[in-house]
Amino acid sequence: MDTQLALWEVFIQKKSGGDHTHCGSVHASDSAMALQNARDIYTRRNEGSSIWVIPSQFVTASKAEDADMLFDPADDKIYRHPTFYVMPEGAKQI
């Protein structure tokens, strides 16, 4: 039997204004505890400026056996990368 508390996914924002990146998971009985546990495990070496926690049960994941169908068709469509445009003069990035 699994005696652990519920699982939460942890997202850490490194710097204010940046994106929150998934970094792992913690066990906790409620959202406040999940935030504290995430803080203690994933930001103790000054990695973060903001934390999101989300109950793992609410994550819907694609199935490994669907990977062929979902991702392989994108293999040969390099024209979807914006690399065929001439960079406008003065633009640093598109």
């Binding site: 652990q4 508390l5 913690v26 066990h27 906790a28 504290q36 546990n37 203690d40 495990i41 103790r44």
Partner: peptide, 11 residues
């Protein structure tokens, strides 16, 4: 009592 709390205490 569990890993997360172990780290919290030692922090």
């Amino acid at each position: 009592p569990f890993l997360e709390e172990d780290l919290a205490m030692t922090n």
